[in-house]
Simulated scan of single mutants.
Amino acid sequence: MTTHLTGTRGDWLAARLDLLNEEKELTRRSDELAQRRRDLPWVRIDKAYMFETDEGRAALADLFRGRSQLLIYHFMFGPDYTAGCPSCSSIADGFNGVATHLSNHDVMLWAVSRAPLLKLADYKRRMGWTFPWASSFGSDFNADFNVFFTEAQQQGGGIEYNYRNEAPAPKREPLAGKTVQEWKTQDGEGPVAQVAAMTGTDVATFTRERPGVSAFAIEDGTVYHTYSAYARGLDGLWGMYQWLDRAPLGRNEHGIWWRRHDEYGKH
Score class of each variant (00 low, 15 high):
201 T>D: 06
68 S>P: 08
229 A>G: 11
25 E>R: 13
173 E>D: 10
17 L>V: 13
127 M>R: 09
85 C>L: 04
207 T>V: 00
192 V>K: 05
185 T>N: 14
246 R>D: 03
6 T>L: 02
55 E>I: 06
114 R>W: 01
231 A>K: 10
101 H>L: 15
37 R>M: 14
216 F>K: 07
248 P>H: 10
18 D>L: 08
40 L>C: 08
238 W>A: 15
37 R>C: 13
253 E>H: 08
213 V>N: 02
138 G>S: 00
128 G>L: 10
181 Q>L: 11
104 N>Q: 11
47 K>R: 00
222 T>K: 00
241 Y>K: 04
43 V>Y: 10
27 T>H: 15
139 S>D: 13
13 L>S: 10
226 T>K: 06
173 E>K: 09
96 N>K: 09
54 D>L: 12
182 E>Q: 15
85 C>K: 01
77 F>G: 06
117 L>W: 07
165 N>L: 10
6 T>A: 01
30 S>A: 08
265 G>Y: 00
153 Q>M: 13
267 H>C: 08
264 Y>K: 08
111 A>Y: 03
51 F>W: 00
109 L>Q: 07
225 H>V: 04
22 E>V: 00
264 Y>V: 10
222 T>M: 00
236 G>L: 09
35 Q>G: 14
229 A>R: 09
130 T>I: 10
227 Y>P: 05
